[in-house]
Design a protein around this nucleic acid. Structure first.
Length: 232
DNA sequence: ACCTATGTTGATAC
DNA sequence: GGTATCAACATAGG
């Protein structure tokens, strides 16, 4: 076990996670939104999060998509070596990922790909914050990041700047449907970058539906692209 | 060279 | 409590 990277294991001191995990057996793996965690047969729970650029690497093989510049072994920040020779690493260029004991899963909302209609209406359809900020709040629903938010809002034809509390039930239902579809598609195909809007998500990009040039601005503190013609 | 951008999240201040 | 802003990181590109 190597947990000496002081940043991805914050706030644990070096060696603490190793001491808790050595000699245990990993018995189950879970995911909710962008958070993952594994259980052990002696109690400790290990939380894993990929941050922006993280990948899980099993026996040298990267899981998920394999985009440019993600694959240097030198970026392995946290590594578990198993007795049978297996190896699990958190490979993360920017080190914004994390590996922690007892992750605070209870602070997450329901998974964005699974949330039911009633729960979605109650949790998302309130407040004055921009709609995009609301769906990206992991305590409201878990799993929507910056790219997936732009994709789903575009699919649902909703303006990201609208106050979340201003949506009708029909609009909320439409948004839930597109978030679930986008999240499931991203999981199946290996990333939100496989969506339809995302390739146009750059200055000068155009709406794939009507060809209108996309607008971009900061919404909820994040760079946001949307079609001024059909997102309301 | 310098400034900006970036699939995220948390601490902090109104 | 809800909302907005900024820092933490490492690299790429104009």
């Amino acid at each position: 076990m190597n947990d000496r990277d002081t940043y991805v294991t914050r706030p644990h001191p070096p060696g603490e996670i190793a001491a808790a995990l050595e000699g245990t057996r990993l018995t189950a793996a879970h995911r909710r939104g962008k958070s993952m965690w594994v259980e052990t047969d002696r109690g400790p729970v290990l939380g894993l999060h990929l941050g922006m650029t993280g990948r899980i690497v099993i026996d040298g093989e990267e899981a998920g998509d394999r985009r440019r510049g993600t694959d240097r072994p030198g970026w392995d920040r946290f590594v578990i070596e198993f007795e049978d020779g297996g190896r699990l690493a958190l490979r993360d260029m920017r080190r914004l990922g994390r590996a922690v004991l007892a992750p605070a899963i209870d602070r997450l909302g329901p998974d964005a790909a699974e949330v039911d209609r009633r729960t979605f209406r109650e949790r998302v359809g309130r407040g004055t914050a921009p709609l995009k900020a609301r769906i990206m709040d992991q305590a409201v629903i878990a799993g929507v990041g910056n790219l997936l938010a732009d994709e789903a809002l575009w699919q649902a034809r909703l303006d990201p700047r609208r106050p979340a509390g201003s949506l009708s039930e029909d609009e909320l239902d439409r948004l839930r449907r597109e978030i679930r579809a986008s999240a499931r598609s991203a999981i199946r195909r290996g990333g939100a970058h496989t969506g339809r809007l995302i390739p146009e998500r750059h200055p000068g990009g155009h709406c794939p539906r009507d060809g209108v040039e996309l607008r971009h601005a900061q919404v909820g503190g994040r760079t946001t692209y949307w079609c001024p013609a059909d997102q309301h």
